[in-house]
Design a protein around this nucleic acid. Structure first.
Ligand code: FES
Ligand code: FES
Lengths: 155, 155
DNA sequence: TATAACTGATACTATATTTATATCAATTAG
DNA sequence: CTAATTGATATAAATATAGTATCAGTTATA
């Protein structure tokens, strides 16, 4: 059971890179090469994030992507919703036809409780928090520039 | 994003039915018809549960399946693991090659924290608990015998 | 003892989702 | 002018989920 798909994964990592280099444009190619993601696939992910106003882009030479939104305002929950749809623990446990009044169904309650817990947890993990954790590990922040750098934050 | 697949869904509902009729054998056909599940698909699910010692079966006429294990010992978490594999929020955020020391990775920690929370929640929801909730709603327990009965517990 | 109602086992098909690639037009720094 | 870049979109490949079909073996019961 995989909770985060590649798209969400790539989105998080791309945002971390953009977050570490805020103020300058970073090209899709640079991100793809440095973090070993499929280039065109990543571009799709980046475009989706533009549509959701998480990042902005500049075309042409020296162009690329830049983080606009406050990293603390970007939760993993939002990313999951963008790339995987709303978190739903299960569709209705029984057939839709016979579940006329969901609000009083005991199973439904149990399921919705978990849904809330899961959503809460994911909401609390923001790009901002992750960035600060990265900075704490690696104060000078060259980490995300090279493969060696990336490796360093995982040790 | 769907957390419970059909197999897990069917497994839970089948176990609830078997739990409500503990002591007697219930055929796959009976379960399939009453809960509107695809017969052969359900059989596969039931066989998987036999392999994991959750239920037992009897072949031939008047045969079927019976709940063996204590319903309180069967958590939704275990069912998810059986039918969807272990809950993993994400595989390693970066490439495996460069993640030599996972235990000290900040991202890893965040991810594992959520993994624990999710697992805990799912572990606490047991077939036993669900059965008691059903009984509280419908003391005489004819609920699971008919479509109308099923409908009654959802109101 | 024949038969119909069952499970065991397994192979197969269909559908949906995820992941990845390819192409071409438009933009822009140098 | 040109190479590096994004925008947009179409398509393919890979994987996972969902569902079907078949046949052999078991057993209650008529
Ligand atoms: S299972 Fe559908 S509302 Fe309860
Ligand atoms: S991302 Fe792989 S161990 Fe941190």
């Amino acid at each position: 059971m995989k909770v985060l798909t590649k798209k969400t994964d790539y989105a998080i990592r791309a945002l971390l890179m953009l977050g570490a280099k805020r103020g300058s444009y970073v090209s899709a190619k640079a991100i793809a090469v440095e973090q070993d993601m499929p280039y065109q696939f990543l571009r799709g992910v980046l475009q989706e994030m533009i549509r959701h106003d998480l990042i902005v882009s500049k075309e042409g030479v020296q162009g690329g992507f830049m983080l606009e939104k406050d990293p603390d305002e970007i939760g993993v929950k939002q990313l999951i919703e963008i790339f995987q749809g709303t978190v739903q623990v299960s569709e209705c446990m029984f057939r839709k036809q016979i579940c006329t009044n969901r609000s009083r169904c005991v199973l439904r309650h149990e399921i919705m409780r978990i849904e809330h817990v899961v959503n809460n947890e994911f909401e609390q993990v923001t790009i901002g928090k992750l960035l600060r954790k990265l900075q704490a590990t690696n104060t000078l922040m060259p980490a995300l520039n090279t493969v060696e750098g990336l490796a360093s934050i995982t040790q």
